[in-house]
């Protein structure tokens, strides 16, 4: 896969104060496990996203340490409590040091 990993995040646009909302995230990534071999029998080096985190107004909400047993295009579904209007920031860290980010705003009425 030559395409750069593309994150997709689903966060409700609005919520009431203190509501617990569901967040869904997906990022395109091959998650090469380091267990597979190519046609010539050489091991394909591991290249996975090893860390995912979600913060709301710079406060950590949820994070995950990923291992090669996570499927390609890692998907996460989790919850977050929204006390006020603000911004969710999502971060994925690749084995090669690349960082992929996305942001979503939410309005609290």
């Amino acid at each position: 896969m030559s395409n750069a990993p593309r994150p997709r995040v689903k966060v409700p646009k609005t919520a009431s104060a203190g509501e617990v909302i569901a967040i869904k995230t997906l990022i395109s990534h091959e998650m090469e496990s380091g267990q597979r071999k190519d046609k010539d029998g050489n091991v394909i080096p591991r290249k996975i996203i090893n860390k995912f985190s979600c913060a709301f107004n710079d406060q950590e909400v949820f994070s995950c340490d990923l291992d090669p047993a996570i499927s390609a295009n890692p998907y996460f579904e989790f919850n977050a409590k929204v006390p006020e209007s603000g911004t969710f920031k999502f971060t994925w860290v690749d084995d090669d040091g690349s960082v992929y980010e996305d942001e979503q705003k939410i309005e609290v009425s």
Partner: peptide, 22 residues
């Protein structure tokens, strides 16, 4: 090892879904 989820008080509930290899 497959994954480790870290929750905080901001998570609201301790629930998470993902997809894994077996």
């Amino acid at each position: 090892e497959v994954a480790t989820f870290n929750f905080t008080a901001m998570s609201g509930t301790a629930a998470a879904t993902t997809r894994m290899r077996l």
